[in-house]
Design a protein around this nucleic acid. Sequence first.
DNA 1: AATCCTTATTTGTATGACAATTCGGCATGA
DNA 2: TCATGCCGAATTGTCATACAAATAAGGATT
Lengths: 253, 253
Amino acid sequence: MNPGKVSPKVTSGRSAGSNLHRKLAQSIGNQILSGVYAPGAILPNEADWCRIYGASRTTVREAVKTLTAKGLLKSRTKIGSRVEPRENWNILDRDVLAWHMASMNPQEFFASVQEVRKILEPEIAALAALNRTPQQLRAITEAFEDMRKARPGRSSVVPDVRFHLALLAAANNVLLSPFGIMIEAALTNMFEFTSTHNAEPDMFIPKHEGILKAVARGNANAARKAALSLLTDTDQTIAQVPIKARKARKAKS
Amino acid sequence: MNPGKVSPKVTSGRSAGSNLHRKLAQSIGNQILSGVYAPGAILPNEADWCRIYGASRTTVREAVKTLTAKGLLKSRTKIGSRVEPRENWNILDRDVLAWHMASMNPQEFFASVQEVRKILEPEIAALAALNRTPQQLRAITEAFEDMRKARPGRSSVVPDVRFHLALLAAANNVLLSPFGIMIEAALTNMFEFTSTHNAEPDMFIPKHEGILKAVARGNANAARKAALSLLTDTDQTIAQVPIKARKARKAKS
DNA sequence: AATCCTTATTTGTATGACAATTCGGCATGA
DNA sequence: TCATGCCGAATTGTCATACAAATAAGGATT
């Protein structure tokens, strides 16, 4: 994975980073997330990166700054750049999450996602029921309508995402907003592996409608319950794909 | 070039950004978070920043790249840099959260934090009870012991933070790890405003012990309940404290 | 053995130049 | 009037080079 010339791996060209420093950041980021450089390891220095990618030092440094800002790196004079411990990584950053997904077993990833979603989304729905503004309710409603109108399939994913993001926004707590990225990634990519939107629209729409109605009439408990129900439902759809047990992270003792 | 001509506002010189591009990023970041530049607004261009801070374009660009990586900005040729909508901000980034706190009403901030903590920490405790490794349990235990040993006061905050972070790590779900930053910020700064650690160590220690024991014997429900109890307890402590306006930490230069 | 100093390596900052992108207006034409 | 396409100017993107600053490592001195 380390050819002498241009870009080892410009994988997952999502979100179109046409800029060179962006491409470098993606490439290096992918290598870190995929374990080529483990936490604590010292990365090649700037001059090395210049040679590896055939880019100028300015560009390399901008890429490094980007990764540093996302918590993946830390640079020190005379030492070089060292990979930060995982708990400092900004995993809910759009790019970092993408790199993470690219180097992970999908089932394992969706297991983590669903775990978090089951914790958060019911409470998000409850908060939305309590705190939503009329405008936010309208946004949720519109997303729902578009969802219902859409034919099952790829296109129905978009309003589905919009629905959940609108719900999140309606919870009116900034500290929860980073999860928008996760939800978006989950719904969008789940489509690639499952056929949620094809399989059971008959289940799907009413469940969402249940959330909407509960939020509309400000019933937190009902909203919570409806959201949880949707999630467990999604779980079953996922479960059709062979599930692998959670990997116990190991260390020994 | 222009020595001594540093910045409109190099406030909250936290975490020692000795580097110039870091200082610029902090300064600009603070301005964005405090609303000087609202989402959608177009920032001064690179040449302007150079003049404003008396720094080279290289440095300015690295600062801008940092902010871009944190989701605060987006640069386009011929347009300049535009502030991104809030939902794209990486609010759980260490720096962004600090800037956010610096420009916010403390009560409001702690209200948001507690809301999220009450949602997450009980579930984190429950997950920890189920998924912890022996090593992770030991880390939690050690933090607890240090907490008990410490005299109430500032020093007891450190092991307290360690306790909660160890718990978080023991939940073994990467997607939750960004909240470590939030928990850390909450506990550390809460000390500045409340006297949690002075006021009721008699309450405090047993509550933590309850969580520890539940996690130790793998009882998820008990862990959840204990964690929630600690949180509602903390709520009361906060409520007692008359809020004084936060004093911006000042750095001069 | 301990301390201090020198040196080498690596990141940090500055400068000037040119490339690439694209917005905005202008000209042209239907 | 409106649409289309071209041109020029503003701004970010990339490059090359030079020097400054920090500091780890090893050697010199005591």
